[in-house]
Design a binder for these strands. Structure first.
Lengths: 336, 336
DNA sequence: TTGAAAGCGCTAACAC
DNA sequence: GTGTTAGCGCTTTCAA
């Protein structure tokens, strides 16, 4: 900046004024400064400025997700980035891989970089530690999962309702023995989807068979193994509700291996990229990551703009996408 | 930091020493400082420190990709993040959506935030403007595409060789009329894959039929339309080489619509998530985004560690994954 | 309309 | 071992 001032033959403050588009600079002076800056390829140091700047904003957001490579998280990320860019903000994204300690480390690393806001997918079972940051004026919005120990804005999918929709859909096609393949129980969304499954079975007056409920699945291989086991039971399920992407893929593989993909109905939570190319095409309860990300980012900026209202808990509905696999009728469930 | 010093009853410099793990602090003093810091939930301001610190490192990397939501880019991103985290670095990722101006804006925004290194997927047809940053000591590594107008480290897929492998594979199954469905010509990887296609046809002594080469495809819908047209030609191709993910998906849809998925061979460049669940399963030339990202990040850190050797151009081989669709023989090409 | 001086939170250099 | 002083690149305050 000094060099630019020197080259333009003005004071350092005048350069600052031009850079920040402040008033009270004669057009000719401004032009001279801009030329000097261009010649030296000068880029102002945002951090140095922030040190003294009244608002002290780093124009940076911190995002914590399961993994930036996870398709759902990546779409949430993209939506947040879009809103952030409109506001002149850059986004730090960090992958937690469901590691509770990584959550702590990531928040600290971002706090040291003085992000203006956090968008967090909680992993730990207690987010109380985040209160300090909120109290210091760094807004926090939780996405995908509700936080524990802190009241803050959140944006989540309608997990229970979505799961109920899936099960109701299967019931309406005559199914009475519907299996549930769930993720690790400690993952909130997994628990909620299981709850929706149980709720809807109860509402339909159906007894849940514990033998058809398997939890703790986290990848497609384990899902394939479990689905194969269930499908070769003496009294196998006639339909399966798989609660997550990879589990759905694993389940399809099992169905194909057993040649049952046109006999046993399947509804998966979370959309699969090429659902419609499969045979049968996969009926899913699709989430709306774009909307989730957008709403979360908008909440952060609303808080940064001074919104001090009570925490808002936004629920983005999941949508049943009918494609074929979920409409396979139960055996002997023709019209009656 | 002053507050911590006050609370611990020490000078400000002692706090600095403890925070940075410098020597010459008595264990008891250090402990007192750490306690004070914990009590105040003090997080040092990384940027303020950098202002004076000798190395002036922000411990931050800037990444420019097509879109953080693109599966290939997201995996590259994750790999870079992994290496970055090991080094105590955070990553800014920016989506360019193939917009040349976005590239310029993103680089400026990251320069103002004083990133220590750039990993860039070039979009513009001239990267000369990046030279200033490299000269100022900010290493630059290009990924996926080679830059123009600047000599710098790069990590790319073996596009030509991969495309040749795909075509050779189809030729070995008796195909003589092989269509090529390509992305926008201005995208470097698209052009290279086309070149590989042409090279291999020539090497096999086959004439390329211009009617079977379609470029300028960028989404699955247009690919479906074009594939349908080609497949209903009087003298249709017996095999298709699709040069990119979405084009492969669009082509599969066309094949399914025409009921030709078991008659016409298909090899796609770029892996599709659920390739193996489709019928037939899709033979692809898979890239290795994890390796690309890791190598790129390692190059950045090597430069930051003082490597001043000549630019390195790393090529990560694409690998033919045989799954079924590419092994469909040409009609009448049985044993002979 | 412009610039000089002070200070943001921290580290470097040099005392003690 | 520890503290003091100066200064990083910028914005604020205030005087000209």
């Amino acid at each position: 900046m000094r060099d630019v001032a020197l080259l333009a033959g003005v004071g350092i403050k005048t350069v600052s004024r031009v850079i920040n588009g402040e008033a009270n600079v004669s057009p000719s002076t401004a032009e001279r400064v801009r030329r000097a800056a261009a010649e030296l390829a000068y880029e102002p140091d945002l951090h140095a400025g922030n040190l003294r700047r009244a608002d002290g904003r780093s124009r940076t957001l911190g995002l914590l997700v399961s993994s930036v490579a996870n398709p759902f998280a990546a779409q949430v990320h993209r939506a947040i980035e879009r809103v952030a860019t409109e506001h002149g903000y850059a986004v730090f994204a960090t992958s937690l891989e469901d590691d509770p300690d990584a959550e702590l480390r990531a928040v600290a690393a971002l706090a040291r970089r003085r992000v203006d806001g956090f968008v967090v997918t909680p992993v730990r079972d207690d987010q109380t530690y985040l209160r300090v940051h909120v109290d210091r004026g760094t807004p926090l919005v939780c996405v995908d999962r509700e936080p524990h120990g802190i009241e803050t804005d959140s944006v989540v999918t309608s997990n229970v309702a979505g799961a109920r929709d899936a099960v109701r859909h299967l019931v309406s096609h005559g199914h009475r023995r519907i299996a549930f393949l769930g993720d690790l129980e400690r993952i909130q969304t997994a628990a909620l989807r299981q709850q929706g499954y149980l709720d809807e079975l109860a509402a339909a007056g159906l007894a849940a068979d514990p033998a058809l409920v398997v939890l703790g699945l986290h990848d497609d291989a384990s899902a394939t193994a479990v689905a194969r086991r269930l499908l070769t039971l003496p009294d196998p399920p006639t339909a399966i509700f798989s609660s997550q992407n990879l589990i759905t893929i694993g389940t399809i593989r099992a169905l194909q291996q057993l040649g049952l993909e046109h006999q046993v109905a399947l509804v998966g939570f979370d959309d699969v990229e090429t659902s419609d190319l499969l045979k049968p095409s996969v009926t899913t309860v699709a989430q709306d990551p774009d909307r989730i990300g957008r709403l979360a980012a908008e909440r952060v900026f609303a808080r940064l703009d001074g919104d001090t209202g009570p925490p808002r808990h936004l629920v983005v509905p999941a949508r049943l996408v009918v494609r074929g696999s979920g409409e396979i009728p139960a055996p002997g469930a023709g019209r009656r």
